[in-house]
Amino acid sequence: MNHVVKTSGLTKQVKGKNLVTDINLHIRKGEIYGFLGQNGAGKTTIMKMLTGITKPTSGEIELFGQMLSERSKSVLKRVGSIIEYPILFEHLTALENLKLHCEYLGYYDEKGMKHALDMVHLRGIEDKKVKEFSLGMKQRLGLARAIVVKPELIILDEPTNGLDPIGIKDIRDLIFMLNKEYGITFLLSSHILGEIEQVANRIGVIKNGRLLNEVALEEIRKQHTDYIELLTTNAEKTVYLLEKELHISNMKIIQGNRIRIYDLSHTQNDISKLLIQNDIGLEEIQKHSSSLEDYFYKQINGGGMND
């Protein structure tokens, strides 16, 4: 497997307290990997270690097959990031911030910098000082800085923080575009599960500093079947009609007159019509889609480790 990020036994301890413990993370080339975890679960700490900002107490980090250590940080040239919030030099302009970043990485391409500002819709204000920027603009500039040197891995901690709905969509589209067109691998975290669900291919669930599970979203969707739930006045007759008329067999009566249908070959409308035609009272009908949210809560509330 071609892993861009691989950690083994990654642990960070501060003042005798473990912030993260024994993290074995695997991020494959070209994927968008989402970190899920409650506040304080350890997502940011892991990201800080992956970007060299803070050192692990124990364990190893491999980026692009190379060990990351204080003496061997050259691999960080291939990584762009925003951790916690975009940290910028407030007294410098947007362009000066980008130039400084590029100089540290030994990269100088003014066209590339302007292109990065274009991508995040910040063109025309490159000479404005960052202290005059709104939080959303700072977030965009942080993103421009993360992508300006064309990294192969981008690590974004809460990238949509402070953005309005249009900004959030822009960032999502930008992530998709960079992933598809340039093959950039992403590691994202967000406290909005729906955000991760829309973007990520694979997720890692973190609880109390431990990585509980790594799973592909496709896998979650397969494992967790969607269903239609209905409450009728006569459950037995409803089941009989559904089997006879609509040939639905994958269903069960879960409680009283409440039925769950797992065969989704017919729409809610078909079912409603059938029951009305046969004088069966329909008190409730609803389609349930099991989401990442369900999966996440299951994991957090007692999901097993996947070691």
Binding site: K48, T51, G52, I53, T54, E70, R71, K73, S74, V75, L76, K77, V79, S81, I83, E84, I87, L88, F89, E90, H101, Y104, L105
Partner: peptide, 15 residues
């Protein structure tokens, strides 16, 4: 204090 030091630590240069 401004946390800009974390930017420097993220560059491929030893502390």
């Amino acid at each position: 204090k401004n946390k800009t030091i974390s930017l420097s630590f993220g560059y491929p240069i030893s502390r």
